[in-house]
Design a protein around this nucleic acid. Sequence first.
DNA 1: CTAGAATGCCGAACACTGTTCGATAAATAA
DNA 2: TTATTTATCGAACAGTGTTCGGCATTCTAG
Lengths: 199, 199
Amino acid sequence: MTTQSPRQKRHEKSQQSILDVAAKLIGEHGYENLSLREVARQADYSPAALYEYFKSKEDILFALSEQIGLQMLELMNEAPASLPPYERITQLGQIYIRFAISHPEKFQLMNSLSSRRRSLAEPISATSPYNLVLDAVKAAIKSSDIKLPRGAHAEEITYSLWAIIHGISMLRLTYLRDFQADFEKIDLMALKTFLKGLQ
Amino acid sequence: MTTQSPRQKRHEKSQQSILDVAAKLIGEHGYENLSLREVARQADYSPAALYEYFKSKEDILFALSEQIGLQMLELMNEAPASLPPYERITQLGQIYIRFAISHPEKFQLMNSLSSRRRSLAEPISATSPYNLVLDAVKAAIKSSDIKLPRGAHAEEITYSLWAIIHGISMLRLTYLRDFQADFEKIDLMALKTFLKGLQ
DNA sequence: CTAGAATGCCGAACACTGTTCGATAAATAA
DNA sequence: TTATTTATCGAACAGTGTTCGGCATTCTAG
């Protein structure tokens, strides 16, 4: 645990207050229309002052998307670990999708950035939404809820599951934004169908 | 067939030449960094002149994304209709994914716009990539390659399939951009596993 | 407690951006 | 030929992200 001087504390507080304003504005106008000058205005700074806390606009968006990732993780962690692996997997998926639907701007921001960052730096933190699913898949394999196709490992299954979950979220945010249908049901069916294919 | 005056013809040619430059620039710098002024420069127009052909930057992007959709459709139409429905579905998926991988900028543009347009206007053209899959699914149902879960119709299956295909494309473009793996194989497995769940 | 350094913050400027307006030249229509 | 539509541009507007120089404030060493 790194102890912090009062100065560092203030610094982080200012940082966070800037991020909060940015998050609010993104929720209102989408992340593509975020204006640093507007952030500065509402956070009571001059535009230049922001650069004391973030080295660029991209940097602000990155910081924000990191926090969003954490929110997502918290939500997914609420899925009881006690569930049978099979159920747990579908639950994780549904939580992910629900988050995407109810916070579309956040979700889109998160995804439009993971494109660039990941490549260079960190190898996806060990406690990430993705790894949560991976663990559930491993458990399902161990308990024989899932039978691996030949040549496949837990990683490939997780990748596929992730694609479905992610794909559904995207679809519902874009092409199907104002379609009327019982998506909760359909999405569940999609997940279950895939899992059924693994038996 | 609407006949066109020489004027209209010239007009459309100019339009297309502008789109071509825009497409080229997008391929080089991504669609988020497209500058109208740069387009104008390379297309030998003043910035203002572009507004004779498109009413806004968004409009240019829309026009472009429409053309990209057509390219995609052409590619997918090359999948022989004679294939058994089951095979045909996986082929369509693979073509879609391959297109996404080999033209990431185009693919991303196409998707970031379908978010807004569709909702208000056209009910997804009858000859669209999506409908190609829908037809293949219907054929698969008729030939009993696919058995519908109770309560499900061809639409729901197609929606799920589309989510997988779309999700895989997205994943590979973002999170997994420089991972090394035999994705062609894994993707095929994902599709087949889902289809297997429908038997 | 004081001198020097680091930090916080701002105004002004730079080099862009998309878009509109008014004017001018060219092509078409009457 | 005249009138009208189309093509084109230069200049300007309002906005953007970012950098720089300078002034206060706050911390840190001596």
